[in-house]
Design a protein around this nucleic acid. Structure first.
Length: 481
RNA sequence: GGCGCUAUCGUCUAACGGUUAGGACAGAGCCCUCUCAAGGCUUAAAUACGGGUUCGAUUCCCGUUAGCGCUACCA
């Protein structure tokens, strides 16, 4: 039975790299009909926060990818300790009574090679038991084979055969002096207990895997399959970090920026993985169908953001194309909360009417605020009357066009074709080009030159609003001859 | 420092010994057009460096360089 897990630790918000790890796990599980498990790795009591956990769930909820089972490591401590103690009993671990280094400054083995503490490693069982019984705090370490030329090995589904000399692996901790298991211990004990068959995670764990193989071995279990993912990095090559790169690394930044969850997923899939043909825009089902470890790359991928623009242009493009391909009703519904956030009194009916006019003009849902403002504003934002000037014309031409338009709009049937015909006829009558006729009207009703096609816009706006706005424009032109 | 991983256009990537090194985003130009978009077409842009192996290397091997990761009683 194929079982995979996503195991975030609640020490920060849901990170873009974690989101991709989650997605790849999900894709692999769904592709193979396996089980997707969410496990909250909260063994670092000091750094866990509720806020962080909330943000992880918030991000996962937005992604809208399901999981089948859920666990919390802090509720499974007994199992972890039990597994650690079994390792100690087998003689594969030992107690290290060296006091913890308290001040961060003294980073112990700076530059030097720290592999193990000989004195503690060789403590006799009797001595070790005696000191433990006396209540002396200790950290439980794995007794990594020394001087045996033993090689620890595993096959990574992405990086291939991996080997490392046991002599190069330090005696890592299993249990802290407060009795809480370390990440390595808790993670492996849970992976064993939850019968995880494939561990899919970031490449930052590639070298940790040798330790994990040792733990599985000590527990007498065959290790699962491993697939490490290339890391997501910043344009400067550095690892993505909250402190250095700010909110760009958070999943919710994309959500709040007006991205559709699926375009974000699609974008993330393209980072470090490829379907090996030239497809880039793929549906969820297509991704599930084609996903495999064979398509995963080995080199880190840059998330291309800048200080001015937090979003990768490719993600934006993917989002824009998905917005355009969505059924109008669905897009309109997605737009509603963003319109509300912009302070627009948007009704579903009105949104439905204007969505076809803006769908090709917005790259994110959030842009509804700038692109569709004139559909909602009672009073247009102030604009310079010079804006009313038609191409190759002047304000006088704008004025005559508007006067004519007012006359036409007052009586014309308010549908696309009638308006088209009447306004074009108007321009012929005035002996100006159609474009010169349309431009002043557009600016008068929209407040700017960049706007959706004119007739549809007029229809959605309605006769009253159009006439009122043309009047307002003409007021600006009272002193024009 | 030790150990490990990686290296194709600015970015994401394709080419699992033989290609004019392909696609996409971003850029530039043209077309379409009532503005803005969307769309269509065109264009510029890459195999880190040095050695091998081979009839032939982006591809295999070695070295150099660079980047990243691990080296915590963080995960």
């Amino acid at each position: 039975m194929l079982r995979v897990r996503f195991a975030p630790s609640p020490t920060g918000y849901l990170h873009i790299g974690s989101a991709r790890t989650f997605i790849f796990n999900w894709l692999y599980a769904r592709h193979n009909g396996g089980t997707m498990i969410l496990r909250i790795d909260d063994t670092d009591v000091a750094r866990n926060t509720q806020r962080s956990e909330d943000s992880i769930f918030e991000g996962l909820k937005w992604l809208d990818l399901s999981w089948d089972e859920q666990y919390r490591q802090s509720e499974r401590l007994a199992l972890h300790k039990q597994t650690a103690e079994a390792i100690l009993k087998k003689g594969l671990g030992y107690r290290d009574f060296t006091p913890a280094v308290t001040d961060g400054e003294d980073k112990a083995h700076e530059g030097g090679a720290w592999l193990f503490n000989p004195g503690m490693r060789e403590l006799s069982d009797a001595e070790s038991e005696r000191r433990a019984a006396a209540g002396e705090p200790f950290v439980l370490r794995y007794r990594v084979p020394r001087g045996t030329s033993r090689e620890v090995r595993f096959k990574d589904e992405v990086y291939g055969e991996q080997t490392k000399l046991a002599d190069d692996i330090e005696d890592f901790a299993l249990l802290r002096s407060n009795g809480i298991p370390t990440y390595h211990m808790a993670s492996c004990a849970d992976d064993i207990d939850l019968r995880i068959s494939h561990i899919i995670r970031g490449q930052d764990h590639l070298t940790n895997t040798f330790k994990h193989v040792l733990i599985f071995e000590a527990a007498g279990v065959a290790p699962p399959a491993f697939a490490h993912l290339p890391l997501l990095i910043a344009p400067d090559g550095a690892k993505l970090s909250k402190r250095k790169h700010g909110p760009v690394v958070s999943v919710t930044t994309y959500r709040d920026g007006g991205f559709l969850a699926h375009s974000y997923i699609n974008f993330l899939c393209l980072l470090g993985w490829s379907p090996k043909d030239d497809r880039e825009q793929m549906t969820r089902q297509e991704l599930v169908d084609v996903f495999s470890f064979a398509g995963i790359n080995r080199s880190n991928a840059v998330v291309n953001f800048t200080e001015q623009d937090p979003f990768d242009p490719k993600a934006v493009w993917l989002n824009a194309t998905l917005i355009r391909s969505l059924p109008v009703a669905e897009l309109a519904a997605q737009l509603m909360p963003f319109a509300a956030a912009a302070g627009f009194a948007a009704t579903p009916e009105k949104m439905l009417a204007l969505t076809p006019l803006i769908r090709e003009r917005i790259k994110t849902l959030k842009e509804v605020a700038e692109v569709a403002d004139f559909f909602f504003l009672d009073e247009l934002k102030p604009y310079d009357k010079a804006e009313l000037t038609p191409q190759k014309g002047d304000l006088a031409m704008a004025k005559t066009a508007l006067v004519k338009a007012k006359e036409i709009l007052a009586t014309c049937a308010f549908d696309h074709d009638s308006l088209d015909a009447a306004l074009r006829a108007g321009s012929v009558e005035l002996k100006i080009k159609a474009g010169q006729m349309f431009q002043p009207i557009r600016v008068a009703v929209c407040g700017r030159k960049d706007a959706p096609p004119l007739f549809e816009t007029l229809v959605v706006l309605g006769r009253d609003t159009c006439l009122k706005r043309i009047d307002r424009a003409l007021e600006k032109l009272t002193d024009v001859a």
